[in-house]
Nucleic acid binder design. Structure first.
Lengths: 233, 233
DNA sequence: TTTGTTATTTGCGCTAGCGCAAAGAGGGAT
DNA sequence: ATCCCTCTTTGCGCTAGCGCAAATAACAAA
């Protein structure tokens, strides 16, 4: 596979970059391809590289001392991840990045990005916009976890994931497919596979979703929104 | 009250700023003093100003549609908050800022900071370090809320708050006082005042803390660390 | 000192959601 | 077609933690 500079402009952080800069990035990058389930990096590794996902999907997860996992974020094509090392000295990744399907990503040394940012205000601003987006999302999710019942949290999670990584399978209707297991959804909404399974079974009975093996199809997004806002029943 | 440029260097984001820049910031600022319980800004307000807390303590909180609150962060003297507007067009504050005690803060227009960042790489880097710090903290707290039992979460919360806003009341021992109500602690650890009260009563019996009205004194930080790591019993 | 207000404690009952265990189902490989 | 592996479902019992209500304590104001 070959990535050309124009493609890189689909990365939000690079949207205002010059052609020369994009070329420089590519010249300083290595393409890493990994299979489903494999890892780009682990929580605690020195954050020497940042990545741009070119194909596939990945997730960022954290593990607690007893090994329980939570999913922090899902990563789609042309998204940057692991850029922390460009901002902090001797940083380690605060999360693990695992491929949800077989994926390829450009790896670039963090120090290269740091260097570049010294003289490109746009790059700074765009990266800060990415960061503030994460902050706002995490704050929201934290509030949800602290205050919402599990069914609502699962609805909010599924809707968020649909927006982030969902594939539309019909153009007219808003029917979206998510390639996620019950485990993935449980880890993203702070509950257990059992509860996710029961909630999805209920939604399926009500015609809101189709629940398959490692897959959910959203048939009625509006119904889910209603659940997420507590307007149902 | 008067703030002089040298003071401002205690603000992490401004640590590398020139004297002239600091003077400029102060000239473009307004000092806002508010009483305990009052607000610097509300979730949803246009993020036109950012603030630097000069005296007092404040908290950032979010409210869900039914009015339940969660505390996202506590703010100490010489910390910047509400800087989102310098990064995003037409941003609104994603959280409410409320004074925990009577407080004063410098308010500066976000556009001024944005302007300034165009030509000061240091300012950018420092602000990004602040942002990555928040991201890491929120990710951690999210994981804790998703995976840890309530006693452990409260221990983690109390320890974190002690580091952020605790006042040492003895130099030899690590005895720290927190000016927080049960309600504050409940909102910061994702539980209820009843549970916080019961847990603190238990810790008091075990000699770990002293629990007063709107106040906790940590007598044995190490014991709390043990609880937070599940090493007790 | 008295009174009013607000924060905290504690008993008590309840239930949302956890998590085991066993059965069932989907999909790939041979 | 069959086997095997992994993912999912569902019944079931249990308990951590919620949340009401009433008592108590701390503080402030008069």
């Amino acid at each position: 596979m070959k990535v050309n500079p124009g493609d890189l402009r689909r990365v939000n952080v690079f949207r205002d970059a010059s052609d020369e800069d994009l070329k420089l990035f590519i010249e300083n990058s290595v393409l890493r391809s990994i299979e489903e389930g494999e890892f780009f990096f682990f929580q605690g590794d020195p954050a020497t590289y940042f990545y741009v996902l070119i194909t596939g999907r990945a997730k960022l997860l954290q593990t607690n001392p007893t090994g329980q996992q939570v999913n922090l974020r899902t990563i789609n094509e042309w998204q940057m991840f692991g850029a922390l090392g460009a901002v902090r000295e001797n940083a380690v990744y605060p999360a693990t990045a695992q491929a949800l399907e077989s994926s390829a990503a450009l790896a670039v040394e963090s120090s290269f990005l740091k260097e570049m940012m010294q003289t490109r205000p746009d790059l700074n601003l765009n990266l800060m916009q990415l960061m503030t987006g994460y902050i706002m999302e995490m704050q929201e999710r934290y509030r949800e976890l602290a205050t919402e019942r599990v069914e609502r949290r699962i609805a909010l999670t599924v809707l968020r994931l649909a927006a982030q990584i969902g594939k539309r399978i019909s153009n007219e209707e808003m029917i979206v497919e998510l390639p996620l297991s019950r485990q993935d959804m449980a880890e993203a909404s702070g509950t257990t596979i059992f509860t996710v399974s029961r909630v999805l079974a209920d939604w399926e009975r009500r015609g809101l979703v189709e629940a398959g093996r490692e897959r959910v199809v959203i048939r009625n997004p509006h119904g889910l929104v209603q659940i997420s806002e507590g307007l149902d029943q």
